[in-house]
Amino acid sequence: MTVVNIQGEVKDQLWRSVEVGEESGSLESAIVSLSTLKEHFDASDQSSLSRVGVRLTVEDDVNEIVEYAPHLGLIELVFSQFKDGRPFSTAVTIRRDYGFAGDLRASGDILPDQALFLVRCGFSTIAVPPQFSVEQFKASLAAYSVAYQAATDSHVSLVSDLRRSAVEVAAE
């Protein structure tokens, strides 16, 4: 699987996905299910958690990771279908309310045309679905230079701020 960052550049694979029932051996650098996380890790074990990732489906209750979130190395939100936009809101909650600063990854059924929305909701990496190319994601991420609303990302600011700076530039 190819993973891109918010610029659409391919990232080295530091993480491997471990499915339920395949948890033999070390879980270091593994992305595990919510149930595996709860079974194998203690929310207070900060050093172990920083080397583990959790994978949440749209059916999982995101509240169950509240205690873990500040210490986790990675959280992956899986899109069951591109039309189901729940992970966008889940991402905002995780970034804003749970104090998660690690790698927030989107995976599953995603269209390149959704890439910028993902980044603006706080995702830091995207797993590129096999039917699409990295270039498509890269192009989509660069399609817009401005946005109207404040969001979780930092690279686009509120439009009123944009307007103010435009006025300042014009005045100079």
Partner: peptide
């Protein structure tokens, strides 16, 4: 209108 246009979180409701 401005707030809702291409809202990153609320475009796949």
């Amino acid at each position: 209108r401005q707030w809702s246009t291409f809202h990153p979180e609320f475009s796949f409701l």
